[in-house]
């Protein structure tokens, strides 16, 4: 796939590098030469460009990209203008970064298909992890539901998923298990390997230390934390 990333700050750089490392064609654009130089070895093409300049944007062939990522939210006006321009130039899909709900509304009106709040999402994640020692990951899926990685409650250990009756009793869907399996290294030291079981069978027994990957309503997750 082909992606255009406009704005190579921390967020844009991470997106560009991750996409490029996954084998996609990535064109990265920023008006700052240093930022461009940081990614040029990794992406397909890195350009120093003022993306608020419509003529310059036209030269990129916006319609050819599967998605355009507008990651310039430090400067709100530029972010809005660039989103509007790439929409007018025929971008198939626009993903825009923001840190403010009001800006998000405007970005959507101007054509952004998806608005991302990395600071808010990371803030929520960090807060959840800090205040819940048994939670190792937290992703909000919708206002009601979240995907959570949680240490298996004692009440579940030694039981099969079927025996826990997790869905009926607790309203949680166990969609995966992350397990650390102890083993001995060649030097005789104890170590472990990570195993991830996605969509485990109902007969899968939950072991002590398992991280359960669950999707549930937030109130059900709170109840699960107390088990």
């Amino acid at each position: 796939m082909q992606f255009l990333v406009i704005g190579i700050g921390r967020f844009g750089k991470a997106v560009a590098e991750t996409l490029a490392e996954a084998g996609h064609d990535v064109v990265a654009v920023d008006e700052n030469e240093e930022a461009v130089m940081e990614v040029e070895a990794v992406v397909s093409q890195a350009l120093v460009m003022d993306a608020t300049n419509e003529r310059a944007l036209r030269t990129l062939g916006i319609k050819d990209f599967d998605a355009v990522i507008v990651a310039t939210s430090q400067d709100i006006e530029s972010s809005l203008l660039i989103t509007m321009l790439v929409k007018e130039l025929g971008a198939k899909k626009i993903i825009a970064k923001t840190s403010a709900p009001l800006q998000a509304k405007v970005l959507k009106r101007l054509g952004a298909d998806l608005v991302i709040y990395p600071e808010r999402d990371m803030g929520q994640r960090v807060a959840q992890i800090l205040t819940s020692p048994r939670i190792f990951e937290f992703i909000e899926l919708s206002p009601e539901y979240s995907l959570v990685e949680i240490v298996a409650p004692e009440a579940f250990v030694g039981k099969t998923i079927k025996e826990t009756d997790a869905r009926a009793k607790y309203g949680v869907n166990i969609i995966g298990i992350r397990r650390r399996v102890p083993e001995m290294s060649e030097e005789g030291k104890v170590t472990y390997r990570e195993e991830t079981i996605i969509t485990p069978s109902a007969e899968e027994e939950i072991a002590s230390g398992d991280l359960l990957i669950v999707i549930a309503k937030d109130e059900d997750i709170e109840a699960l934390k107390k088990l």
Binding site: R134, F136, V151, R180, P182, K189, V190, T191, Y192, S208, G209, L211
Partner: peptide, 15 residues
Amino acid sequence: IDALFSLGVLYEITH
């Protein structure tokens, strides 16, 4: 050291 390291790994396995 062996005991301390093994205990560390045990704690890591059990999160």
